[in-house]
Design a protein around this nucleic acid. Sequence first.
RNA 1: GCCUCGGUAGCUCAGUUGGAUAGAGCAACGGUUUUCUAAACCGUGGGUCAGGGGUUCGAAUCCCUUCCGGGGUACCA
Length: 616
Amino acid sequence: MLFVQLGHNKFAVRQSYSNIYFLVKFASMNFIVSAAVRGIKHLYNEEIDGSLISLQDTRKEFEGQVTIVIFPIIKVSKKSPEQTANELGAYLLEHVEEVSGFNVVKGFLNLVIADTYWLKLFNTQLLHPSFGVFEANGKKVMVEYSSPNTNKPLHLGHVRNNLLGFSVAELLTATGHEVIKVNLVNDRGIHICKSMLAWQKWGNGETPENTLIKGDHLVGKYYVVFDREYKKQIEEMKLEGQTEEEAKKNAPLIREAQEMLQAWEAGDPGVMNLWKTMNGWVYDGFAVTYKNLGVSFDKYYYESNTYLLGKDTVEEGLEKGVFFKKPDGSVWIDLTSDGLDQKLVLRADGTSVYITQDLGTAQMKYDDFGMDESIYVVGNEQDYHFKVLFLILEKLGKSWSKGLYHLSYGMVDLPSGKMKSREGTVVDADDLIAEMVENAKQKTELLGKTNDFAEEDKALLYQQIGMGALKYFLLKVEPKKRLLFDPKESIDFQGNTGPFIQYTYARIRSLLTKSGFNGYVPAEATILPEERDMILLLQKYPQELSEAAQAHSPATLANYLYELAKLFNKFYHEIPAIIREEDSVLQQHRLNLCALTADVLKRGMKLLGIEVPERM
RNA sequence: GCCUCGGUAGCUCAGUUGGAUAGAGCAACGGUUUUCUAAACCGUGGGUCAGGGGUUCGAAUCCCUUCCGGGGUACCA
């Protein structure tokens, strides 16, 4: 091949996790920065730092691809922005081979980079197998997500959690981290006992087998039964003259549930058996939902094994003087100097509270894996809890505490407000999945896209499209924002959606097949502006990936993929039919471009947990 | 009360390490198919970036303040 590796624009992204933003963002434009620095030296006899050269994409209404913002430089040039821009532009045009023109708009120097540069970049770097592939960076990261309670089925809020956690894990893996996905199952406690007790009393021996009800839903049904019967008792007791508070505390049902919890803690064989049986039903149910969601875990922790942890940590804290004991024997930490409150870490009777367990569990997880970073994917209602947890671990002198991160995400709300299990205003995960797949089916059949598909291929396609729509819908929104879901309006399949990107991919695959594309072969063609725009956007993939991973934000990547698909569709529409192209070099080049777009879309969507179909 | 996160077009959202005239999709209206998949493409209309003040050459972006909304401030998890 004729092409020579361009030595000056290796991807900084791949070489290090650089926090020098402009280097990462415009990695292939480093030569412009260094040339500009030389230009300033030549023109104004001043040595400046490269960080003063602020690059951005040229706005599409102007000619050029890269823009230097001149304002920061005028302090050095001591001339007007326009004059400085013109002088620097002239210098770059003369001294930098790739710069083929420039124009100045106010304080902005727009540089036209020669098409030959973009083509070389495309042929040598973007088509290279290492494009967008990060080398292992030796960092180990744990991502804890999902963490369900075993007393009811998953709802839409859990779906957001699962998709977020899985995607963040994928992003980190793709950017060179070793990732451990962990599910900490909340499998014990009073809420589980409520379901167990209700089933014992009113279950009539119902099982998933004899009712054909999915296990988690069956257990959830008895959780609701408990609540209903409990409320009845409260009402009766209030009629007998007790206050609401007294009734809630004294109702026979809640007492029984508490006794059952004590029996569980004492290891009562009957209770343990029931617990194991019903949890088993729930796990079978969850397995189905997880499979549909496409999420997986490397390690499960069970709270039934970890709920007693943390007492050692409390002892350690007392010895170190980080905690203190009140006269009643309860143990506290005073965080008022950090702007927080006093926080209880151990009850007077020596039993644990939530944070006690979490202290112990954090230590255990670190002892097990020795990870550099540990991400907790948990809703934003626990922001305060994690702030306190991390601060305590820091005060205890845990070296690993600085690697702890709470990936906080907003609730999924309905138009009517918050989802509430007890009021039946939850969007059930399994129902929603089924509905999405059904919608995909109807939409696809309406368009007549699958008339010649085999039955099993149809089912797979509807699953891919339905889940693609759902996953993209949830992941395209910045995690920390709360998200509105209106059950009356079905999730779209057009515009900024998963199916739009899937469609774009399938369309490219069809084109490649029909035109007999046989793999990347660098081709030296003359490129059109539409193609240059595509190269410009494709080139950003590694940096987008890196940013999304660092920000723990699949939304960043989702929006990039949408932009790419949109630009491709425009390109596809405007360019003459590639199949009929008679110039074989040009055809090869355009097929390269299409194939790389498909490749990036597929790889990117995979990191969102979304599959792309070959046909749709 | 205090802490915290939000507020961008009718709706759902991008854009926030300060850069040019704030962008998409949906919805509305109009157009594009003898050419590689019309789940597409092109166009029209739509904005006090919650309000006010400040910092600066430049603010949706940073600071202060007010308003609105979510969450937290449990010996629940």
